[in-house]
Write a protein that binds this DNA or RNA. Sequence first.
DNA 1: CGCGCAAACGGACAATTGTCTTTTTTTTAA
DNA 2: TTAAAAAAAAGACAATTGTCCGTTTGCGCG
Lengths: 355, 355
Amino acid sequence: MKSKHTEPKTVTRPIRSTTEFARHVGLARTTVSRVLNGQPGLKKKTIDRVNRAIEETGFVPNAYALHLKGKRTQTVGVCVQNLSFPILVNKLASLQAKLRDREITTFIEVVDGDSCEGAVRNFLSLRVEAMVFLGYFDEKKIERQLQGLANNGTPSLVIDHFGIKGANTVTLDRARGMVAITEHLLDLGHRRFGLLGYSESFRSTHERTRGIREALEERGLDFDKCTENIDDQIVRTSDFEFGRALVRAFIERGRPPTAFIALNDVLAAGAIHGVRDMGFRVPEDFSVSGFNNQDICSMVVPNITSVDQRVDKTVQVAVDFVIAQMGKPLRAKPVVKMIDPLLIVRGSTGPARSR
Amino acid sequence: MKSKHTEPKTVTRPIRSTTEFARHVGLARTTVSRVLNGQPGLKKKTIDRVNRAIEETGFVPNAYALHLKGKRTQTVGVCVQNLSFPILVNKLASLQAKLRDREITTFIEVVDGDSCEGAVRNFLSLRVEAMVFLGYFDEKKIERQLQGLANNGTPSLVIDHFGIKGANTVTLDRARGMVAITEHLLDLGHRRFGLLGYSESFRSTHERTRGIREALEERGLDFDKCTENIDDQIVRTSDFEFGRALVRAFIERGRPPTAFIALNDVLAAGAIHGVRDMGFRVPEDFSVSGFNNQDICSMVVPNITSVDQRVDKTVQVAVDFVIAQMGKPLRAKPVVKMIDPLLIVRGSTGPARSR
DNA sequence: CGCGCAAACGGACAATTGTCTTTTTTTTAA
DNA sequence: TTAAAAAAAAGACAATTGTCCGTTTGCGCG
């Protein structure tokens, strides 16, 4: 048995520089370097020899020396708020994929509560050519960070968090999304709406409340008369249980609205279960809408009517912008791009039952 | 009004090297460097002057030059399979957080279908001190990559994917998880089980089937007599709909099992809806179990009995191992650490109804 | 055998940083 | 005011790579 002989016993220490690699191949360092960088005036045989050795040894030139030499780093740093929201994760994955397609390396830092200061420092130290902030951050802090980046000449972009001063921004037009939902429900004959989860004081919540208000006023309806919000009457645990408890409370107190507009899909899923708990049906007795069009929309019966964030479109716009800015002087005025949302009508909304 | 004067109009071009920075502060480069690296023999006033200038300008030394000089990179590269599975995302986030706590920078590449070759090359070029593979990959490819890393002297670790030759591995003991579930159901009086989603030919599925088999044989029961699998009779769309359709088919064909053991929580959620579709109740008429203990377990009524992966424990073990290996010669023999799973009993499992 | 040319070699430089040593300047103490 | 001590400056080197340039090698051809 003379197997086990394919792998050579050359347990020499790893090759860590072009010099060592060149010695291993039996060529001059400069010659190897010329091969690696595709310079002319080299015999095919030599080129093959080098490439074969690369195959064998897995040698990769040191990125640190490479970029030090002044070569563009072709890297982008991404600060992501956290990975608890599936929608953010989708955006992150899509972002890296699209940047990779353009031969750009993405560095990712999950910030999650910490200020992103450390992440930004790290990225700057790595001389990224642009920086992306994905999600919602402390406005004061992020504005300071962005200012620092501007002084530094590093282009930056904020995805999602709308309203940051001086920031290049790509974000879903959340107000418009709510207009779409509200109009959809109005068309179905609903006139009284229970808002689920709309008392958080985030900027995005304000934006979205504004959308509902606009859609109602467009039809001559009054926001305060048409909507009810009993968020503060329920102790909030998980989104699911919160939505469920809110709906039960709405029904128990009598004269409930005919449609529930939830802040997100999980709340909506809870709401659907709340309706069922009370012996009613969705959408025959009550309509329920979600937001974000997450997977859970299809994991509940009936499936949830929701607003899709158009992650792909959003990220595409973001990537195009970032790449256009890389390696160029900063723009004087910030760019804000709003992405049109997409209403996905499913089984959880239906005609209002006359009561 | 003499506001707007706080920010100096010095729109000089950004400072990109210690030399430029030193000029800006009015000190010698070497002095600044000594301050940055905390060397002794410096006046407090000078140190303060430098620190203040850092505050103002946001100057960060070039990481590329730093590491080139031979300083350890203190970086780890993580190849993650994809971000479609929430459980993987959790592990990834936890991994980066724990590594950051130890002052290690994590580079992340989401591979998603592509071979991870490119990612590995990129990491090697960045001279990471260790590499982690998170999730399931093509065995042949990953073995080749690991071999390459071994030649290179870079420690590596595989999380989740059990059974890769020569790989340091940290993984949930999936067989043991299934033993726990099966025993739990046996204790509740169940003797016939419907397996949902167990016909995929992944290594993890085999492991888990083995666990069920062992638990049954432990009580003198025969696997083939006690379990049924009708996966191939249903067209698989989403996991949710698949689980739902499977259960309906089980019930429609008559003489259904009393408990359904689903491959994951989404299948289990579908199964619960399937039971309800047919006019039965969970857990009174049928028990349903999931796996992974994802969020969805609490977003279904009744909540799903599942097996928790103990992400925190898993990642902690992984991080401890990785850190112990960094910057040291490779171990001769691979280390495999199995993590004990944790059965979480919730409302979806109950005593078997005698029929 | 000698010439010319292509190909490879070998040396040098630049990029930035930390560190070491030597020199100069500043501060402190007498 | 002067000498000593402390602090800062200045210069050099190493780390790795790409590139430039002059030199050497090898080969074919006459």
